[in-house]
Amino acid sequence: MEIFDILLSASFWAAVLRIASPLILATMGELICERAGVLNLGIEGIMVFGAFAGWMAVYAGLGLWPGVLVAFAAGAMFGLVHATLTVPFGLSQHVVGLGITLLATSSAYYAYRLALPQVTSPPRITPFQPLEIPVLSDIPFLGPALFSQTPLTYLAFASVAVVALVLFRTPLGLALRAAGENPSAVEAQGLSVTAIRMGAVMVGSGLMAVGGAFLTMSAFDSFFFEMVNGRGWICIALVVFGAWMPGKALLGAVLFAAFDALQIRMQQTPLGAEIPYQVFLMVPYVLSILALVLMSRRAEVPAALMVPYNRGER
């Protein structure tokens, strides 16, 4: 069976981790926002802007890591706008989030056209190269599959550990989760719900932007319009699928990436050639909807998600 040949090849699993990386980063970003009580529908646009900003910074002469920082900072700026409107002003998180997506996407496209008015094909940068981890990368099968990735993939996996640690092992994480579950309890502790939520949205948006930057700085080497292509929306589904837990969300992202990598390879098999390629491209979106349906009954939604907090109001 061809499918077993595919599943048993190291290059397949290397591709899975590569496809999962931007999803993991952005999913962690969204998870932080939602744990603090804010649904961030700006994610799709913030990923577009992150993809543009990181790539542009490197194209303009910055190093790769400073480029990642630029993407993070740009994402955090859009996060600040989102948070200002949704937290202290308590505006509809749906409307503001979609507005941020429109704003960030069109800003990236506008800036791209300004910076490169007459190019037909976008210029390339030298992206992150695979970093072979000594010793581990020599292990047969696992080495080439897991330990010969680009640094941003390692960063993506590290971000899951950091987010999990901070959320469940630090006072800051406790306060953040409480802001999403029971904000008046946070206020009773003398902490500011507004500050916690705004901080969470800014950091979360920064991570989303780095997720976008993975596309232009690691997976590919230039910026295309519509390259994010709904990945942000998929990440929102992954947060639900992961029941707002970093580890489960990571599992969801890898599982999802495995299906995605599989459909790409299935397209090239004789059987796959018989089926219109659009059917394969639909798979990720259909899977996301299925994941939402499967998890609908079980997930524990943060109690104060999408509920604006107004001090002194009960």
Binding site: G230, Y285, V286
Partner: peptide, 20 residues
């Protein structure tokens, strides 16, 4: 029926429909 958030499902449907 199932409490599935319609924001994400309607958004994802846009991509499915365009491919269809």
């Amino acid at each position: 029926r199932l409490g599935v958030d319609e924001v994400v499902t309607t958004l994802l449907f846009n991509f499915i429909m365009l491919l269809f």
